[in-house]
Every structure is written in structure tokens, then in C-alpha cells.
Design a protein around this nucleic acid. Structure first.
Lengths: 109, 109
DNA sequence: TAAATACATGAGCATATATTCATGCATTAT
DNA sequence: ATAATGCATGAATATATGCTCATGTATTTA
């Protein structure tokens, strides 16, 4: 999670395919909601099951489940089943990095 | 733009204020639209005036102007006037970093 | 087996959002 | 001064989105 900053990657409009643009928009959209951000902030520290998340956020279990489905579909979170509970976790450190950067961006303004 | 990765910043839910969460959501929301992303991709390389952006994206001048207003309000782009033209540019390298990271995230999937 | 628990999901509704259209406001050209 | 150009903006509309409610499915307990 710490390396990779001086990558030679560049963004130029001509090279960006329509599908890449839409994929990026989808990813950002997933992070563009307070409820989902709160869920991710909780998962930033440790994995949690659905009911636990709902309690902490004071949001209905249904609402949390809907949001988790969306995050799942974009590979932002992953899950594992244990009995009748389903534990969710951040999918990878890529997500952590983006969350951290934006958090900093918001702070230093 | 390249340094700053091993910052000691952490995200934990309890410490995140409601307003910080909303600020982050707003920032992500600004990046969560294909048209705005295309605009930013254009500006990634160089500053451009409104009409020029509209031409390149095949979007109406009005639509571009509306989106630029939103990006402006969140300090994602900045502008300078020159005669009757207004040139827009990315506000800072923070934005570049976030765009690059997400671009990579989308590629490596 | 029946009841309870934990989570997922479809439909419906209220709100948010992106675009278009019409128009306004500067600045430059005639 | 009048017209033209470049950009900004308010209103209206169509679509997208997040939540609730009702219900379904899987797993555990009585």
C-alpha cells in the first residue's frame, strides 16, 4: 500500500476509452454517498458483519445491505460467510489509498 | 505531487465528523460523472477555454459551463479570464493524484 | 419440524442530478 | 451605438439514486 507513486502513468483524453471513463465514474459514484463512506470508514479498521454496521450507523439493515451489494459489485468490499453472518471487509489497499487521499484533501482546505 | 504516501494519517470512524464525511462525499460526487471526468481528463494535459472543451466533448456549451461551476465550487478547477474567454485548469496536484490512482484502479482489474 | 436470526432483494416513492432551452451579462468588432 | 462572440445562469424535465416496506432464503436453535 505504500509504494507506487512515481508510476509513469499519464492521463490524456484521447487515450481514455469511453468504457474506462464510465468505469472511473462508477467507482467514484460508489464513494460519493455519506452512508457508503461511513460503512467504508468502519471497515477501514476491521471487518464487520451487516447487522453490526447497521447498529453503528443507525441505518436500517436493508439499507446497509443494498449499499453493500453496490460496493460488492464494484470490488470495493469483499465478504466471507460465517454461520448466518456475513463479514465484510475492504477489498484491497487501493481503496484505502483513495480514501486516505481524499480525506487529506478535505482536511487541508 | 510524487511524495507523501507514508503519511501517518489514519481513518477511523469515530474520529470522522459528519461534516468531513459530507465533504468527502461531495468531492467524490464531483468526480462521479462521465462528462466531468472527460473535462478533467482534457484539463489534465493543459488549460482550455469553455468553448474549446465543449467542442472536444461534443457537449453543449451550457452543459459544460454548468459542470465547470460545480467543479469550481469544490476547488477542483480554477480559471482565469482573458478577453472574453475563460480558461480553466486543474486546481492542484491533489486532484491529479486522485485521478491517476483511480485510473490505475480501473485498469488493473 | 417450527421458530428465530441474519442477510438479500424487488417494488415503490421521494429526492437529487444532468441536460436542454431561453436568456442575461461582459467583451470585442463593425 | 449596434452586432457578434463567449460564457453564466435560472427554470423545466427526464432520469438516476437511496431509502423503506414487504418478503424471500439460508442457517441455527428450540
Amino acid at each position: 500500500m505504500q509504494a507506487a507513486t512515481n508510476t509513469p502513468v499519464e492521463i490524456n483524453y484521447e487515450a481514455l476509452s469511453e468504457s474506462a471513463i464510465h468505469a472511473m465514474a462508477e467507482s467514484f459514484k460508489a464513494l460519493a454517498d455519506p452512508t457508503r463512506l461511513k460503512i467504508l470508514a468502519l471497515l477501514f479498521a476491521e471487518e464487520r458483519c451487516v447487522g453490526n454496521i447497521a447498529e453503528h450507523l443507525d441505518v436500517s439493515q436493508s439499507a446497509v445491505s443494498h449499499q453493500l451489494r453496490l460496493l460488492r459489485s464494484l470490488n470495493i468490499v469483499r465478504y466471507r460467510k460465517e454461520g448466518r453472518e456475513v463479514y465484510y471487509d475492504l477489498a484491497d489497499d487501493h481503496v484505502r489509498g483513495i480514501l486516505l487521499r481524499t480525506f487529506e484533501h478535505v482536511l487541508h482546505d
